[in-house]
């Protein structure tokens, strides 16, 4: 079901964005999760964002709920999964997400808040990566973290879709 959003355009109830670069090892967490979710959730918009953080703002303006999946470098064990709901959560400083031009998902969220251009509900799943060297493929612990995220997002998407049809 679509609804009319802030700017008067039709919004999608749910958009899932996997953020990252699959050619930089564990930075490919977001794209890997998006690939898996694409198969598991054929009726949901699942996209990969492998470019500039600022483009997230452009993409999420027409979605009611956005689920972002990204790699983080917080010092936790590789594969550790954290979940934030913005608002009320804020992204902790130590939870560093990958970025270009110093502008990644954390900055996009801060800018979206400053401009009042956040989706109604923004959920971030961050998975601790181990290496960001050039190359493809995730390390074993990180793969396990991605599998966990995929399961949790499938559950979360079911709730969002159910609420949207109420």
């Amino acid at each position: 079901m679509n609804a009319v959003g802030k700017q008067g355009a039709l919004t999608r109830p749910l958009l899932i964005l996997g953020v990252g670069n699959q050619f930089r090892s564990d930075d490919g967490i977001g794209p890997a999760a998006a690939d898996a979710l694409h198969e598991r959730l054929p009726t949901v918009a699942v996209e990969v964002c492998d470019g500039q953080g600022v483009d997230l703002l452009v993409r999420w303006t027409l979605a009611d709920t956005v689920i972002l999946i990204d790699a983080m470098r917080s010092g936790a064990e590789p594969g550790t999964v954290r979940r934030f709901v913005v608002p009320p959560d804020t992204i902790p400083v130590e939870c560093r997400l990958a970025s270009t031009h110093g502008f990644g998902p954390a900055e996009a969220i801060a800018l979206g808040a400053a401009l009042d251009q956040l989706p109604r509900r923004l959920i971030l799943y961050a998975v601790e990566g181990a290496t960001y060297a050039e190359g493809m493929g995730l390390c074993t612990e990180v793969e396990r973290g991605v599998k966990t995220v995929v399961e949790w997002v499938v559950q979360e998407a079911a709730v969002v879709q159910e609420n949207a049809t109420d």
Partner: peptide, 15 residues
């Protein structure tokens, strides 16, 4: 981000 709080119109143009 700091600029957007006082001058949202600048950042909105960019977007």
């Amino acid at each position: 981000i700091a600029m957007a709080k006082d001058h949202p119109e600048i950042v909105e143009r960019a977007l």
